[in-house]
Amino acid sequence: MTPALPVLIDTDPGLDDAVGILFALACGRFSVTAMTAVAGNIGIGTTTRNIGRLLAAMGRDDVPYAAGAVGPLQGDGLDEVAIHGNDGMGGVDLPAPLTLPDARGATARLAEVLAAAPAGALTLLALGPLTNLVHLAHDAPQAYVRIGRIIAMGGTIHEPGNAGPYAEFNIASDPLAAQMVFDGPVPTTLIPLDVTRKLRATPDDLDRLAALGTDAARLSADLIRAYFHGNADRASRPLHDPCVMLMALHPQLFGVEQMRLCVDTAEHPGRLSQMQNGAMVDVAMTIDAPAALEALWRGLGTV
Rank of each mutant, 00 (worst) to 15 (best):
S173I: 01
D174I: 01
A106N: 03
D288V: 11
V81D: 06
Y166S: 15
L8K: 06
A295N: 11
D102I: 03
A266G: 12
D62N: 07
A108V: 10
L272F: 02
L98E: 08
A103R: 15
A232R: 14
L100N: 11
A284Y: 06
A108F: 06
L246W: 08
E267Y: 15
A167Y: 00
F228Q: 10
N277H: 15
R109F: 09
M245V: 10
V134D: 02
D183E: 13
A211T: 08
A167E: 00
D76P: 09
T11E: 06
Y65Q: 02
G184P: 04
A39C: 09
Y166K: 15
G59E: 03
R60Y: 08
D102K: 08
S173H: 15
N50S: 05
G88R: 06
E257W: 06
A82R: 15
Q142L: 14
A121Y: 07
A96Q: 12
P269L: 06
A248K: 05
T99P: 09
I171M: 03
D10E: 13
A291S: 15
L110F: 11
M280F: 08
A96H: 12
G154I: 01
A103M: 12
L293T: 04
G43I: 07
D205T: 10
D183R: 11
V186S: 04
R225C: 04
G155L: 01
G161P: 10
A178W: 01
L193C: 00
H268Y: 15
I9A: 02
A211Y: 09
A248D: 02
G255F: 05
P203H: 03
H135L: 15
R53N: 02
G299F: 10
M280P: 09
P95N: 03
A216K: 05
P290M: 10
L22I: 09
G148A: 07
L190A: 04
I224E: 02
V70F: 11
R218N: 08
P101K: 07
F169L: 10
L73A: 06
F30Y: 12
R237H: 12
K198N: 14
A167W: 00
V263Q: 01
C243H: 00
G59V: 02
G255E: 13
F30M: 09
P13M: 05
Q252W: 13
T214R: 07
D12N: 13
G148W: 11
D288A: 14
I83A: 13
D17I: 04
P118Q: 13
L130R: 11
T202N: 09
D183H: 05
L253H: 13
L176V: 11
L199D: 01
A232C: 11
V283Q: 01
V186F: 07
E257P: 10
F228L: 10
Q179F: 03
G45V: 10
M89P: 05
T156P: 00
L193H: 00
L22H: 01
F254W: 05
P97T: 05
A289S: 14
Y144S: 06
A140P: 10
C27M: 07
T131N: 06
M35F: 09
P238K: 08
A103V: 12
A108R: 10
A289N: 08
D205E: 07
G155F: 00
M285F: 12
H268N: 15
